[in-house]
């Protein structure tokens, strides 16, 4: 059981690092551009809420591992966190207010910083792929995005929006 608790302490600290980096980014952003969203007490509160929702999502995901339905076991943690957040934000507008004091773009910069570091050892794997596959990749990415955008555009038009 102590091992189990240690795991959550570790997740908690990593999430603390994550929200800490967001706070830092938002501060830097407002230094660079005074018109951007300032860091306020509500921002810190919002970051606390994000931390809490993430922890709850991790907990739910762990509980769901015991489910007998494969689909539920395989459902990503990212999804559980979104659902947790959606439900709690629907219940109380307080969460919405707090979270919206956190600047969206300030959340993305630290994530992509870590994404860049995380792929450092995979750059060599690029040699295993060919230019043909790279060209296919461009079409595959274009296909999924443009395909969805076309259908969405058509749907919105038919819905009269």
């Amino acid at each position: 059981m102590t091992n189990g608790m240690n795991k959550y302490v570790k997740y908690g600290l990593i999430l603390l690092l994550s929200v800490g980096l967001i706070l830092f980014t938002q501060e830097i952003k407002s230094l660079k551009d005074p018109n951007s969203m300032p860091v306020t007490g509500t921002t810190v509160l919002g970051l606390g809420v994000l931390w809490l929702f993430s922890m709850i999502g991790i907990g739910i995901s762990d509980v769901m591992q015991k489910s007998s339905v494969k689909f539920i076991r395989d459902f990503p943690i990212l999804g559980w966190v979104s659902i947790t957040s959606l439900v709690l934000c629907l219940i109380s507008d307080f969460f919405v207010q707090a979270i919206q004091a956190v600047d969206f773009l300030s959340i993305t910069t630290p994530i992509l910083t870590f994404a860049g570091i995380s792929v450092a050892n995979r750059l060599v794997d690029l040699r295993k792929t060919s230019w043909k596959i790279a060209l296919v990749a461009i079409f595959v990415f274009t296909g999924t995005y443009a395909g969805s955008a076309l259908l969405a555009q058509l749907g919105l038009y038919l819905a009269g929006n």
Partner: peptide
């Protein structure tokens, strides 16, 4: 560390989306 825990670094972003969808 970065590749193993990237998903956790990303969780606060996912937690933010509830606040965008709910209203």
């Amino acid at each position: 560390f970065a590749s193993k825990y990237l998903i956790f670094i990303m969780l606060p972003l996912m937690a933010r989306y509830g606040a965008d969808v709910a209203p």
